[in-house]
């Protein structure tokens, strides 16, 4: 499918997500709009409860009741499948099935969210391939081994047959990245992908995401609370607070010259920027 080069891969317009709880309606995401260009990385940054994860989940229609997308459009301009309004797809449509894990895939903070404890690493990645691509099981296995190698897992053949609990946290996150990228998605959503990891492991995982993004040419939506990760990984940033985007722009502009008071408050609270109190 050919789109004008300036047309972004993803356009989110006036997205509203509410949770209809017995105690009343909570507007978790209120009138949020943003877009992501092809091959670029947008960071969605905010504190707990700001609505950044709910926004990310909406893109794959993963918001569970009592939560619901009440308004807005989520337009994906896929090279492979054309223009899709994800927000209006039927829950049972084949296209939504293709979007999830095929055109758009997601990695989570806790890798065990995405891994089944009772299946081997290899069989889970095989399954992701077999669901979305028309290949033989033997070919899927070859692809899986190649992908495990690519994400820096040594002894791929041995790891293929192991269960998630036999891997360290960093290795599990690598396996999840392999599973997310093996179908060459056009958009990767990474929800706090390194928050649970040590800083030296985090550096390796972030480097891996960058390298594979370049190789596959996908865009990345990075959900994080860490301005360090934003500065090192993203091209653009949107700052969320209480369900709204309060400021957005290029990473350099927002971090070096924040316009909104809340962004300034967050940046001033960073331990690395606070004057040493003695």
């Amino acid at each position: 499918m050919n789109f004008p080069p300036e047309a972004p891969l993803l356009d989110v317009r006036n997205l509203r997500v509410s949770f209809f709880t017995p105690d009343g309606v909570v507007g978790a995401v209120q009138n949020v709009s943003f877009s992501i260009a092809r091959g670029r990385t947008l960071a969605l940054v905010g504190e707990s409860g700001s609505g950044k994860s709910v926004t990310a989940y909406s893109l794959l229609r993963l918001v569970q009741p009592p939560g619901r997308i009440v308004d807005g459009r989520i337009v994906l301009r896929s090279q492979r499948a054309g223009e899709i309004d994800i927000s209006h797809l039927d829950e049972k449509s084949g296209l939504l099935f293709r979007v999830r894990g095929g055109l758009v895939s997601m990695i989570f903070q806790e890798p065990m969210t995405a891994l089944s404890p009772v299946h081997t690493i290899g069989s889970q990645i095989d399954e992701a391939i077999l669901v979305h691509q028309d290949v033989s099981p033997a070919a899927a296995r070859r692809l899986t081994l190649e992908m495990l190698h690519k994400v820096g897992i040594a002894n791929a053949a041995q790891r293929y047959a192991q269960y998630p609990h036999e891997l360290s946290g960093g290795m599990r996150q690598r396996a999840v990245i392999a599973m997310a990228l093996v179908c060459r998605p056009e958009l990767l959503i990474a929800d706090e992908p390194t928050t649970a990891l040590d800083v030296t492991i985090q550096a390796q995982i972030l480097g891996l995401i960058k390298t594979l993004q370049r190789e596959i040419g996908c865009s990345v939506l990075l959900i994080t609370h860490d301005f360090g990760v934003v500065a090192q990984m993203a091209d653009d940033v949107a700052v969320m607070r209480q369900g709204e985007i309060v400021e957005r722009g290029s990473v350099r502009a927002v971090l070096k010259n924040p316009q909104h008071a809340y962004t300034r408050t967050l940046l001033d609270a960073l331990p690395s920027r606070r004057a040493r109190v003695m």
């Binding site: 820096g152 030296t200 550096a203 390796q204 972030l206 860490d226 500065a231 350099r252 971090l255």
Partner: peptide
């Protein structure tokens, strides 16, 4: 030195070290 270089700086002009795996 390796540990410090792996910390992502909130200053986009201070590049973090993605290569810590090899260095360790």
């Amino acid at each position: 030195r390796i540990l410090l270089s792996a910390v992502p700086s909130p200053d986009p002009d201070v590049k973090m070290n993605f290569n810590v795996g090899e260095e360790l």
